[in-house]
Design a protein around this nucleic acid. Structure first.
Length: 324
DNA sequence: CGCTTTTGACCAGCGC
DNA sequence: GCGCTGGTCAAAAGCG
């Protein structure tokens, strides 16, 4: 996997080239052969910048992937018959050293199309033009059909709508997480709506949907065939609401994590270790953690001390700017 | 009782 | 056209 790590690293380099605020030490510290320094993320963390950037195409270039497949990007071999990484997909790989819980790490590659333009509700707009609209229309129709037919859903109608429109997906973001639990708590509430066996893998893939009304975000959770301790979570879509961390079932989460979160630079350490595992950072030097220290600075702290916050740090774009 | 999970069926897309 | 696979639906079961 070391070779793959290098791959990831190279893409990081590429990213730094395009985004100077992610400064990169030319020489690096002793013991920091790869020369990473704390990136100067303007605000809101890594992807907030990405989200706010006016040029996602540029980002796409920055992360112009040589990975031809998700497996390659992850550094894990075939997980079923996944084909090419779609252009709008983003892959963020991470590994947690936590024993039984879920931590995400930000390290990896991204490729986002202009569909994900940073203008408000950008992804939603993109979605409304294609797959998102298709699904929304279906839902509306179904709801209308329920009213009209007394709960009887007209399958044919919805299917006809689907025909002729090539189904397109919203941008997807994948995380690799080392965890014993499959479904990682990220602060949002999810309802499982399906599970499928994955080809060439003894581990099934689970499908979840955000339970919040009108939020169409979905996620897939599967275990790596090669390393069962690694959970691959793929998010699709953009949350249209705040992270409901205070909802039922979150209190225990907060409690269970409070000790860890109380640690200074908790996330920095985690991320640092994760990056280290990925060969992206060197824990023996401060610069190795530099990338993460920024994330754990007070101004970067999010209001919700859980993994949802982590997710939002990594991908704040999941939380729409315009809140109800 | 309301919500979530399970699970078999169904459909669309793709490759051969 | 056919078979395979990923993704989704929806009824039933489970749970608090």
């Amino acid at each position: 996997m070391s070779g793959d790590n290098k791959e990831l690293f190279h893409h990081y380099e590429s990213f730094f080239d395009h985004y100077p605020f992610f400064s990169q030490h030319s020489g690096g510290g002793s013991g920091d052969p790869q020369g990473f320094e704390a990136p100067t993320i303007p605000y809101g963390g890594f992807t907030e910048y990405l989200q706010s950037s006016a040029d996602y195409g540029m980002l796409s270039k920055a992360f112009d992937l040589s990975f031809s497949t998700k497996e390659e990007a992850f550094g894990v071999p075939a997980l079923g018959k996944e084909k090419k990484l779609e252009s709008e997909d983003a892959v963020i790989a991470g590994l947690s050293t936590n024993e039984n819980s879920s931590v995400m790490a930000g390290a990896g590659v991204m490729s986002v199309t202009a569909n994900s333009s940073p203008s408000s509700s950008s992804v939603e707009v993109a979605g409304e033009e294609d797959y998102g609209a298709c699904e929304k229309d279906r839902k509306k129709e179904e709801e209308a059909g329920e009213e009209e037919n007394g709960g009887q859903k007209d399958k044919n109608t919805t299917k006809q709508k689907k025909k002729g429109e090539k189904r397109q997906r919203e941008p997807r973001f994948a995380f690799m997480t080392k965890s014993e639990v499959d479904h990682l708590e990220d602060g949002y509430r999810w309802r499982k709506y399906g599970q499928k066996a994955v080809k060439n893998s003894p581990y099934p893939r689970s499908y979840y949907r955000c339970t919040t009304q009108k939020c169409t975000v979905k996620k897939r959770v599967e275990r790596s065939n090669q390393d069962p301790s690694i959970v691959i979570t793929t998010y699709e879509g953009q949350h249209t609401h705040h992270c409901p961390a205070n909802v039922r079932g979150s209190s225990h989460l907060l409690a269970s994590q409070s000790s860890a979160m109380a640690m200074p630079n908790f996330r920095a350490e985690l991320f640092g270790r994760q990056l280290t595992q990925l060969g992206l950072a060197n824990p023996s030097t401060s610069s190795g953690y530099g990338f993460l220290q920024n994330l754990s600075s007070p101004s970067q702290q999010l209001q919700i001390p859980n993994y949802g916050a982590l997710l939002q740090d990594i991908m704040p774009s999941f939380v729409k700017s315009s809140q109800p």
